[in-house]
Amino acid sequence: MTSPAVPYATLLAFARYVDRIGPAKATFVGGLRKQRESRSGFNPHGQLIKALKSDIAFHGGGRHLHAVVNEVKPRWKPLYEALLPGALTYLGTLPKDTDLAQTRDAIAMLGDLPVKINPHFGLRHADGQAEAVRLHMDEQPPSPETVMATLHLMGRHMDQVLPHATPTLVDLRRGIVHRPDPSVKTAQVEQWLAGEAAAFRATWSVAA
């Protein structure tokens, strides 16, 4: 297990970091470090993700998603109600013969910064095509930087995550699916991410 003192990021955290500018970057990294050292943090979306996966696996047509909105603790009910329409929209875009596929986590090294690549789930379509899916559940849509970083890092390690699959980022509140742009130059993205990772690591050390 990575020591809290060592610079480290999840794919979610790093994608959020590259979306920030100026002092907001340092504030964000400082908050991450404090959270890591206090071992705090809770994912309120867990039940919703499980319900979405159940609807995909059992072809439930949204039955599990509707049910979880009624079953979740009152504290999280407004959040789930806000996510439900987009989740149903996304579910409706999937062919009825789509099944879940097993994904594996991977560690991406950006210079000296480890970034954990952890899709929420995989999809396997009847024609044999596969997707590794990350869900974006923030109030604001993902920025172009967030989309690019997420899809690039997932694609970079797809041989470990889900071989021959396409990386996909789903803006769940709006039911919008983002896939790689073939016009994006991989070398330029790598150079950009390397610079972002170096700045992240330096800021982490300053926050110590």
Score class of each variant (00 low, 15 high):
residue 10 T to G: 15
residue 10 T to Y: 13
residue 10 T to N: 13
residue 10 T to V: 10
residue 11 L to K: 08
residue 11 L to W: 09
residue 12 L to G: 11
residue 14 F to S: 13
residue 14 F to I: 14
residue 15 A to I: 09
residue 17 Y to Q: 09
residue 17 Y to P: 11
residue 19 D to L: 10
residue 21 I to D: 15
residue 21 I to F: 13
residue 22 G to T: 08
residue 23 P to N: 07
residue 23 P to M: 08
residue 25 K to Q: 15
residue 25 K to Y: 09
residue 26 A to P: 10
residue 26 A to S: 15
residue 27 T to M: 14
residue 28 F to G: 09
residue 28 F to L: 12
residue 28 F to T: 07
residue 29 V to S: 06
residue 31 G to P: 01
residue 31 G to R: 03
residue 33 R to K: 15
residue 34 K to P: 04
residue 34 K to V: 13
residue 35 Q to M: 14
residue 35 Q to R: 14
residue 37 E to G: 10
residue 37 E to T: 13
residue 38 S to K: 12
residue 38 S to L: 13
residue 39 R to L: 14
residue 39 R to N: 15
residue 40 S to V: 09
residue 40 S to Q: 14
residue 40 S to M: 12
residue 42 F to H: 14
residue 43 N to Q: 12
residue 43 N to S: 14
residue 43 N to E: 15
residue 44 P to A: 10
residue 47 Q to P: 05
residue 48 L to S: 03
residue 49 I to M: 07
residue 50 K to I: 12
residue 51 A to C: 08
residue 51 A to N: 04
residue 54 S to P: 05
residue 55 D to N: 01
residue 56 I to T: 07
residue 56 I to L: 09
residue 56 I to E: 09
residue 58 F to Q: 15
residue 58 F to K: 14
residue 59 H to K: 12
residue 59 H to N: 12
residue 59 H to G: 08
residue 61 G to V: 01
residue 62 G to V: 03
residue 62 G to Y: 02
residue 63 R to D: 13
residue 66 H to C: 07
residue 66 H to V: 06
residue 67 A to W: 08
residue 67 A to D: 12
residue 70 N to K: 13
residue 70 N to Q: 13
residue 71 E to T: 05
residue 72 V to H: 03
residue 73 K to V: 05
residue 73 K to S: 10
residue 75 R to Y: 10
residue 78 P to V: 07
residue 78 P to E: 08
residue 79 L to G: 04
residue 79 L to S: 04
residue 80 Y to I: 07
residue 81 E to W: 00
residue 82 A to K: 11
residue 83 L to Y: 02
residue 84 L to C: 06
residue 84 L to N: 05
residue 85 P to M: 11
residue 86 G to S: 10
residue 87 A to V: 07
residue 87 A to W: 01
residue 88 L to P: 10
residue 88 L to K: 07
residue 89 T to E: 15
residue 90 Y to R: 02
residue 90 Y to P: 03
residue 90 Y to N: 05
residue 92 G to F: 00
residue 93 T to L: 09
residue 95 P to C: 03
residue 96 K to P: 03
residue 97 D to Y: 01
residue 97 D to R: 07
residue 97 D to A: 08
residue 98 T to A: 10
residue 99 D to S: 08
residue 99 D to A: 06
residue 100 L to V: 02
residue 102 Q to N: 01
residue 103 T to F: 03
residue 104 R to C: 04
residue 105 D to T: 10
residue 106 A to Q: 04
residue 107 I to K: 03
residue 109 M to V: 00
residue 109 M to E: 06
residue 110 L to C: 12
residue 110 L to I: 02
residue 112 D to E: 13
residue 113 L to P: 05
residue 113 L to C: 02
residue 114 P to A: 01
residue 114 P to W: 01
residue 115 V to F: 01
